[in-house]
Computed example of a mutant assay.
Amino acid sequence: MTAPSAARRPVTVRVFTLRLSATPRGARLARLLAATQLHAWGIPHGSDVCDRTAAVVAELAANAVTHGRVPGRDFELRLSLVVGSVRVEVTNTRAESRPPAPGAVRPPHPLDEHGRGLVVVGALADRWEVLDREPPRKTVRAEIDVPGRLSPAKGGAPVDGRGCANH
């Protein structure tokens, strides 16, 4: 008979999923709801992780509304708090408008009015990728690392007391 492992605790993954209208209002709401959800998970308003996550959500939601919009169809925001990071997924229903892969994003010309969204995502996220889903859908996934460790005693909330701007 083997002794039970004393140090093992279950891994808790927290998930928040919401469909939003593919409109500028839906994109703004995605950012606000993401910041609010992170705060509820223990990543306070004003923290580096919350601010970076909110900005990534804003950029990906704006891209979904601008480039992935199909009239009458929503986009989906999915946040997951997994061990060590916050995962952001934004899915839209226009698979043919595929963004470039992370290594293929080029900075825009300084006078260009558009083209900075994925540059911002690349600068703020620790990792990101584009996933093809069952047509007609695609997902852009980004991860922001959570400094410190996650505390099982606090339900997976970070043990780092910095907070998220509620923009």
Rank of each mutant, 00 (worst) to 15 (best):
M1D: 13
T2D: 10
T2W: 15
P4N: 07
P4A: 11
S5G: 07
A6T: 06
P10F: 14
P10S: 14
R14A: 11
L18D: 01
L18G: 00
R19F: 13
R19G: 04
L20P: 00
S21H: 13
A22C: 11
A22K: 07
A22L: 02
A22Q: 04
A22H: 08
A22E: 09
R25F: 02
R25M: 00
R25V: 10
R25W: 02
G26I: 10
A27K: 03
L29A: 15
A30C: 07
A35F: 09
T36V: 13
T36G: 08
A40W: 03
A40T: 10
W41H: 01
W41T: 05
I43N: 04
H45K: 05
G46L: 04
S47C: 03
S47I: 07
V49G: 01
V49H: 04
V49L: 05
T53R: 09
A54H: 15
A55I: 02
V56N: 05
V57Q: 06
A58C: 07
A58M: 06
A62P: 01
A62G: 09
N63Q: 13
A64K: 02
V65A: 12
G68C: 07
G68M: 05
R69A: 15
V70E: 08
G72F: 08
R73A: 10
D74F: 15
E76I: 03
L77M: 06
R78M: 12
R78C: 14
L79T: 11
L81Y: 01
V82Q: 14
V83E: 13
G84L: 05
S85A: 15
V86D: 11
V86G: 06
T91I: 10
T91Q: 01
T93V: 07
E96F: 03
S97T: 14
S97G: 04
P100Q: 09
A101R: 15
G103Q: 01
A104N: 06
R106F: 00
P107W: 13
P107K: 11
H109N: 15
L111F: 11
E113W: 12
E113T: 13
G115N: 05
G115C: 10
R116F: 00
G117R: 03
G117H: 02
V120M: 12
V121M: 02
A123I: 01
L124F: 11
A125R: 12
D126I: 04
D126L: 08
R127F: 06
R127H: 10
W128R: 05
W128T: 02
E129P: 00
V130Y: 07
L131N: 02
D132H: 06
D132R: 13
E134A: 09
E134S: 10
P135T: 13
P135A: 15
K138H: 14
T139K: 03
R141V: 12
E143N: 04
I144Y: 13
P147S: 05
G148I: 07
L150F: 00
S151F: 00
A153I: 03
A153P: 00
K154M: 08
G155D: 03
G155E: 01
A157G: 09
V159L: 10
D160M: 02
D160E: 12
D160Q: 12
R162T: 09
R162K: 03
C164H: 06
A165Y: 07
N166W: 13
N166L: 14
H167S: 08
H167R: 14
